[in-house]
């Protein structure tokens, strides 16, 4: 078994274990219905996390994700009331996400600013941008959105896939292709693994960094679109702290926060684990949301410590 799949294996094991625990506690838990709901509820966070996966693989971090989701939603909602067709605004917002990410990536690389700080500024700018656009929750009423929200593909066993879930799965496939079948994908892994070596091996580090954050940006924007369709509204306080959930999903998915190691597919399961935990706790009824945070934290701790000790076996230490 290839070592690089161990963390993913751990993730999938945890996911299945949680699912089975749920099944043993509640009737009807082990069903495509529950699975479909988890997918629908967490589609936007998983999409955002996929973008974050690229950023983290490259050795960076993106905190602007949550604000981007809210900003996209708010702009879509306001343009909707102005009579624009959602497809036009969607295309516009995706382009905006790409450009904004690229801008962040450029500043990070050119000015040698820590990604943490630059994307923190991005978080402020976009959240502030939301408030500048509107202070209220604005509904999106266009029939197209209603249609998208109600479209469902039935699954065997009574479950169904929502539009958001399908978009999520499609974007996951695209991300896997980008990560594993393009030069850009390889370059991301390389600069995350060892930036200096990558440079000496001929990887264009600046271009790769800019494109990485641009990818993070477009995925965050897509997450915003899915979230807006899911809630049929735009709200400036939406998705507060979503960037943390996205990072947690990436880490639980087996990607090293130090960069260079991880699989995009893992992020799907990482996000599903987070969704499963909240579903389990909501099913329980008497437990409150405290446990969602605490159990996420504990899982995060376990995975981070596990990664800490796995690093050695990946031979990341320098030859001396």
């Amino acid at each position: 078994m290839n070592q690089k799949y161990w963390p993913l294996l751990a993730t999938i094991t945890v996911f299945i274990a949680l699912f089975v625990i749920g099944g043993s506690m509640y009737n009807n838990f082990l069903s495509t219905l529950v699975l479909g709901h988890i997918l629908a509820d967490n589609a936007f966070i998983i999409i955002a996390a996929i973008g974050t996966t690229f950023v983290i693989l490259s050795g960076g971090i993106d905190l602007s994700v949550g604000s981007m989701i809210a900003f996209v939603g708010v702009v879509m909602a306001v343009l909707d009331s102005a009579g624009w067709h959602p497809l036009v605004t969607i295309a516009m917002m995706l382009a905006f996400g790409f450009l904004f990410g690229a801008f962040q990536g450029f500043i990070i690389d050119y000015c040698k600013i820590q990604p943490f700080i630059m994307t923190l500024a991005g978080l402020f700018i976009l959240r502030g941008g939301c408030f500048m656009v509107t202070l209220d929750s604005v509904p999106i009423k266009h029939p197209f959105v209603k249609m998208m929200a109600s479209t469902r593909v039935p699954l065997p066993g009574g479950g169904f896939l929502t539009t958001g879930a399908m978009v999520m799965l499609a974007s996951l496939v695209i991300a896997i292709i980008i990560a594993h079948y393009t030069r850009f994908g390889s370059n991301v892994y390389a600069i995350g693994g060892d930036r200096e070596s990558a440079r000496l091996m001929g990887v264009p580090t600046r271009k790769t960094t800019v494109l990485t954050y641009a990818t993070g940006g477009i995925y965050a924007a897509l997450a915003g679109v899915v979230y807006a369709l899911y809630t049929s509204s735009g709200y400036p306080l939406a998705a507060t702290g979503a960037e943390l959930n996205a990072i947690a999903a990436v880490v639980l998915g087996g990607t090293l926060l130090t960069g260079g190691v991880g699989l995009v597919a893992g992020t799907l399961f990482g996000g599903m684990i987070l969704g499963l935990i909240s579903t389990l706790i909501i099913f329980h009824g008497s437990l409150n949301s405290a446990w969602i945070m605490i159990s996420s934290g504990i899982l995060l701790f376990v995975f981070i410590v596990m990664h800490r000790f796995l690093i050695g076996s990946f031979g990341r230490q320098k030859l001396s």
Partner: peptide, 26 residues
């Protein structure tokens, strides 16, 4: 002690700390 990057190490408490607060309340 464990040599985990600060940004990652403190993320753990950042994610779960508010939950601990809620738990104490409950």
């Amino acid at each position: 002690g464990m040599g985990i990057q600060p940004i990652i190490a403190t993320l753990i408490l950042m994610v779960s700390g508010r939950g601990v607060g809620l738990l104490i309340n409950s």
